[in-house]
Design a protein around this nucleic acid. Structure first.
Lengths: 210, 210, 210, 210
DNA sequence: CATGAATGAGACTTCATTCAT
DNA sequence: TATGAATGAAGTCTCATTCAT
C-alpha cells in the first residue's frame, strides 16, 4: 500500500482537481497552477504524473468514455427491445451527468464538442460510440422495429445529438436540473427520437376527419 | 464615395478572411496576423475596424444568427404545417452550411458549442432561437398536431441538437457532404424528430419477414 | 487674412487642444487622435502642422518659457530691490498658473520636471531661467543686500524649487487654489526664501526673554 | 534554506537591476527585458516575482519612502532645535542620494515628480512626508522659534521643494556633486529656508560699501 | 488644406514546461 | 516523490506616423 498507494492517490487527487478546474474555468482558460492549487499539491507534481496539461484531459476523457463504450457494447449484445436499448444508453449518460456534472461537462464541452482541438484528437473514440448506436439502430431496422426512412448512421448521430443538447442545456443552466427533470429527460430523449413528436392518430388534426 | 466604399470593402475583406482562418485553424489557435495576412492587409488595420480579435467572431456570429432568428420568426408566423415549419428551419440551416461551410463551422464550433467562452457570451441570442422553435412546437401541440408527451422546450432543444450534430458530422468529415446527402439530411432531421424512428404499427417486426 | 489666417487659426486650435489633453491625460498617456478630437479636426491635420507629437509639446513649452525668460531679463535690468525682483518673478509664474493652469501644468509636469525626457531636451532653456535668477541674487549679494552664506547658484535653484513645489501643490490639488491663496503664496515664496522661517528676534523663544 | 535564500536574492537582484535600468533609461523608455538582462535572469522570472513592470517601481519607492517617513517621524519626536530637525531631514535625503544616486533618481524623477502617473498613485504616501515636516514647523511656530508669517503647510512644501530641486540639479548634472558640495548643500538648504537669503539688518546695503 | 484609412514596429504579459534540489 | 524557481516563446493590442485622395 504505502508508497505506491500514496502515489496513486496523488494522481487521482490531481485528476479530480482537474475536473473541477476545467469545468469551472474551461480547459484553455485555466492554468496548470490552478489545478495544482485546487489539488493542494506542488506545481511540479502535476508534471510528475502527467506529461502535459492535455494529458490530464485526455485521461479524464478516455477513462469515462471507455465506460460508455463498454455500456453501449453490452446493451447492443443484450436482448432488450430497441427502444429499451436506447433508453439504457440515454439513461446511462444522463445519470453520469447527474452523478458527476463537472466531469461530464468537461467531457462534453472540452472534448466531444471541441471540433478544433480535442474533438479531433479523439475523433475515433467518439466515432466508436456512434458506431455502437448505429449497430443497434441497424439491427432494429433489419428486424423491422425501426423504419428505414432514416439511415442508421443519421439516426445514431441524431440520438446522440439530442442527448448532448440536453446535457448542454443543463450545463448552460437553461434546463431545470432536479431528479424529476432528469427522469423526464430520459423519457423525452427516447420518446422524441423513437416515437417522434407528431401525434399518433392520423398525424394531423385535419387528418382525423378522414 | 469611392473612399467610403473602399473602407467598407476592407472591413468585409477582413471579416471574410477571418471566417477562413477561424474555420481552418480555430479561433484560439490562430493569430490576428494570420487573419491580416489572409486578408492581405496590414496588421494594424484589423484593429482599425475591430476592437479585438473577439469582436470579429462576435460580428460574424451576430450577423448570421440574426438572419436565422428572422427566419424562425417568419416561419413561426407563416401558416405552414408544423412539420413543414421545422423542415423550413432545418433546410435553412443546412443550406447555410452548404452555401458557406466555413462560416457555419465557425459559428457552430466557436460559438454555439463553446460553452466556456463565446457560447456563454451569446447565450441569450442562442436562446432566442430555441424559444422560437419552442413556440412552433407549442402551437402544434395546442392544435393537437404534435403530441404533448415531450415538453415543447425539450422538443425544441432536441430538434436543434439533431441539426447541430449533423453539421458537426460534416464538419468532422464523418458524414458525406454531397448535394444529395444534404437533401437527405434535411428530410432525415424532420423525419427523426417528427415521425420518430419506430416503424408505424402494422409494419412492425413481422413486416421484416416478407 | 483669409487662407493664411485660417491656417494659423487651425494651428492654434490644435495647440490649445493639446494643452487641455496633455494636462488632463498626460503627454505619454494621450494619443494624437485625442488631441485631434479635442480640437475637432481630422487626425491627419495634426501632422500637417506639426512634425510629431513631441513638437506640439516643444512648441507649447518654448512659447511660454521665452516669455518667462524675457520677464526675468527685464526684471534683472530694472532697479527694484532684490526682494521685489524675486517677488515679480514669483508673481509672474503664479499668475501664469492662475491664468492658464492647464498650460502651466503641462510645462511643469511634462517638461521641467521630466528629467528623462523633455526636461533633458530643454535643459539649456531651463538653465537660462536659473542663470537669470542667479544673476539677480549675485548682484544682491555684491550689494550686500543678500548674505553670501548661500551660493547664488543654489539660491536660484532653491527659489525656483519653492515656486515649482507650490505649483505642484495646486496641480495635485493638495493646496487650496483661490485668489487669496495665490496672493498669499506669492508673499510666502519670497518671505520664505528671503526672510527665512526663523523668527527675527533672537531666533529662538528663549531669545524673546532678553 | 539555501533555496529560500536564493529566491530572495533573485528578487533583490531584479530590483537592483531595475534601479539601474530605470535610472539610466527612464521607466517608460526601458523594456522589462532590459531589466531581466541587466539582472542576468530570464525574462519570465521578473514576472515570477512582480505582477507587473509598475510593481517594481512601486516596490522600490515604498521601500525607500517608508524609511524617510520613519526618519521624519523620529526627528519630529526628538528634542532637537527646529533648525536642527530640518537639517537632519535634509541631510538624510541628500545622503540617500549620495549613497545611491540611481535609486533616488528613480524615486524623484519617476515617482514624486511624475504628477500624471506614479506621483498620483503614491500621492498619500508623499503627502505623509509633507505632513511630518509641517508638524515640525508648526511646533516651532508655536514655540515662537519660527515666525508665523509663512503658513506651516507652505513652509513644509517649500522646504521639500528646495531639497528636491537640489537633487534635480545633481540628477541633471548641473550641480557639482562632490563630497564637499553635498555637505555645503545640506547647510544651504537649511540656511535658505530658515535663515533666509537676506543679510541680517546692520549688514545691509551699507555693508557693501566697506 | 483637409481627411482618415493604412501601416507595422514594439512591448507587456501569460503560461506551459523544465530542472535543480 | 515532491517542490517551486527558472525559462523563454508566443501573441494581443497600441499608436505614432505615412499616404492616397
Amino acid at each position: 500500500m504505502s508508497a505506491r498507494a500514496a502515489a496513486v492517490d496523488k494522481r487521482r487527487l490531481i485528476l479530480d482537481a482537474a475536473v473541477r478546474v476545467f469545468a469551472q474555468q474551461g480547459f484553455h482558460s485555466c492554468r496548470v497552477s490552478d489545478v495544482a492549487d485546487e489539488a493542494g499539491v506542488a506545481y511540479g507534481l502535476v508534471y510528475h504524473y502527467f506529461a502535459s496539461k492535455s494529458e490530464m484531459l485526455d485521461t479524464l476523457f478516455l477513462e469515462r468514455w471507455d465506460v460508455l463504450l463498454r455500456l453501449i457494447h453490452d446493451v447492443d449484445e443484450g436482448d432488450l427491445e430497441p427502444r429499451a436499448k436506447l433508453q439504457a444508453i440515454a439513461g446511462f449518460i444522463i445519470d453520469s451527468y447527474r452523478h458527476d456534472p463537472d466531469l461530464m461537462k468537461v467531457i462534453i464541452v472540452e472534448v466531444t464538442r471541441a471540433a478544433n482541438s480535442f474533438g479531433l484528437t479523439h475523433l475515433e473514440k467518439i466515432q466508436e460510440a456512434f458506431k455502437g448506436i448505429e449497430a443497434i439502430v441497424e439491427r432494429a431496422q433489419n428486424e423491422g422495429v425501426f423504419s428505414s426512412a432514416v439511415p442508421a448512421q443519421f439516426a445514431s448521430l441524431a440520438f446522440y445529438g439530442v442527448i448532448e443538447q440536453a446535457l448542454t442545456g443543463w450545463i448552460f443552466g437553461v434546463l431545470a436540473a432536479g431528479d424529476e427533470e432528469f427522469e423526464e429527460a430520459k423519457r423525452s430523449v427516447v420518446e422524441t427520437v423513437c416515437g417522434g413528436l407528431e401525434a399518433p392518430a392520423g398525424r394531423s388534426a385535419s387528418a382525423g376527419t378522414l
